[in-house]
Nucleic acid binder design. Structure first.
Length: 436
DNA sequence: TCTGGGGTCCTAGGACCC
DNA sequence: TCTGGGGTCCTAGGACCC
């Protein structure tokens, strides 16, 4: 049996180009064509770049002070961020998209997935639909978007990337409608690190085994990828092959945590100053908590030194304070946070950041896995390999959570548990021949 | 001198119960 | 039949996303 069912679904990913920059330009048209960035809190670093600035090779997150020279040379303008404005623009975009289909997932502030196979019959083809969406968003909100279409979310993401990068798509790309050779060509020209879910670390490991392009990854065996990188990677491989594993999430799942944190404009050493900041964060977090009608059963406080100051002593400390009675009360949460701070604070360090995390109450089961390989390394391997073969032939691709082998002197027995992500084969004893 | 602020999921491993 | 650490909860931390 397989956890992955084939489907004929078609996803469209609609993504606003350079979202924060584009929002600023809607209200300041004179910034159109001007190379510009939007800066983070404290005007620390660039969190959005215009196309011109990207073309200059400026990376996401580049500190503003590091690009002074470049800015002077190319006339780069900088804006402080205005998240209220961006949030408002975001909901306007979503409103337009909903007029195309109710089957929509708001994935982030500037991206939505649409399930489009049912809408399609009103249009000549997917490209026409994509262009309509693009035009409609532009006319209504002033924001430029690109549309990527594919048989899975991951492919829709990839298509969106192609639409953004390559002029000839005119902002709309459907990898599902493409002939295979053409798709493979694009895939081999796209670095594996561009795939949704492949970050820096994994990309590095993949490249080390000569998986450089998206096409290379497509060729790799999902099972082998799972062994090395885990179940998320396996899912991703199937997604790339056009088997959809990630569903549209039309209703946003309840949040599991709420974070309120800030960097300091300058380094802080005194407990009093830290306490002021922690109290502010606790209050802000409590406010967020109440607006979504939840309560918290535990609260985490953390303080950190500046990781960029390599030669300064580093201190990352956090503590979780359980609340006897789950609460949403500002005073209760603030007091708990301050009590936590008292326990982790150490003088002599220069702190850069402080924050509060609320852990929301949920009935989600915890997931644990331990691997055969690990048990083997603990010296239980004598008969484990046999047991493993046995288990594999019987249960195929079940995710094994733990396994054990025992003996009564003449017979071997094994026990396994699967994870709760796959069919639950809980405890099961069986006999194996004794190995010698 | 100056380097964001949110989130998610998965895995490892300790502690305690039986 | 009845093997032997398994069951379960919790926390920390790494990887990813925008």
């Amino acid at each position: 049996m397989s956890a992955y069912s084939p489907s004929n679904t078609l996803f469209a990913l609609v993504d606003v180009n350079n979202f924060y920059v584009s929002c600023e330009r809607v209200f300041q048209p004179k910034l159109e064509e001007v190379p510009m960035v939007v800066l983070s809190n404290n005007d620390g670093c660039a969190v959005a770049r215009s196309a011109e600035v990207k073309a200059l090779g400026v990376k996401m997150g580049t500190p503003w002070f590091q690009m002074q020279e470049l800015a002077k040379k190319h006339g780069i303008k900088a804006c402080s961020s205005n998240y209220t404005l961006y949030g408002d623009m975001s909901s306007r975009v979503v409103q337009v998209l909903r007029s195309f289909t109710p089957n929509l997932e708001v994935y982030s502030i500037d991206e939505s997935f649409l399930q489009i196979e049912t809408v399609l019959k009103q249009y000549q083809d997917t490209i026409e639909l994509g262009q309509k969406i693009k035009q409609q968003v532009k006319d209504t909100t002033g924001l430029p978007v690109c549309v990527g279409i594919g048989a899975s979310k991951t492919l829709a993401k990839l298509a969106n990337h192609l639409a953004k990068k390559h002029q000839q798509f005119a902002g709309v790309c459907d990898v599902n409608a493409m002939a295979k050779p053409e798709l493979y060509q694009w895939m081999s020209e796209t670095a594996v690190g561009e795939v949704w879910g492949i970050g820096r670390q994994i990309a590095k490991k993949l490249q080390a085994q000569n998986i450089q392009s998206v096409f290379d990854l497509l060729q790799a065996s999902p099972q082998a990828m799972r062994q090395q990188f885990g179940v998320v990677m396996e899912r991703l491989c199937y997604e790339l092959r056009g088997t959809s594993c990630l569903q549209l999430e039309e209703v946003a799942p309840a949040k599991q945590q709420i974070i309120a944190s800030r960097s300091f404009g300058k380094l802080v050493t005194s407990q009093v100053e830290l306490a002021q900041s922690v109290a502010t964060h606790a209050a802000r977090a409590a406010e967020k908590l109440r607006t979504q009608n939840s309560i918290t059963g535990a609260l985490t406080v953390f303080i950190q030194t500046n990781p960029f100051k390599q030669y300064e002593p580093q201190h990352h400390q956090s503590i979780t304070i359980p609340l006897v009675d789950p609460s949403d009360d500002t005073l209760t949460l603030t007091n708990a946070a301050l009590a936590g701070l008292k326990q982790i604070y150490q003088p002599h360090f220069r702190y850069k950041k402080a924050g509060v995390i609320l852990n929301l109450i949920s009935d989600k089961p915890t997931v644990q896995q331990s691997l055969f390989e690990d048990m083997e390394s603990k010296g239980k391997s004598a008969h484990l390999m046999k047991a493993m073969d046995e288990i594999n032939t019987r249960f195929g691709n079940a995710v094994i959570r733990s396994a054990a082998v025992g003996t009564n002197g003449t017979k071997q027995a094994w026990q396994m548990r699967s994870s709760n992500k796959s069919p639950n084969y809980t405890t099961k004893w069986d006999e194996l021949p004794v190995a010698r």
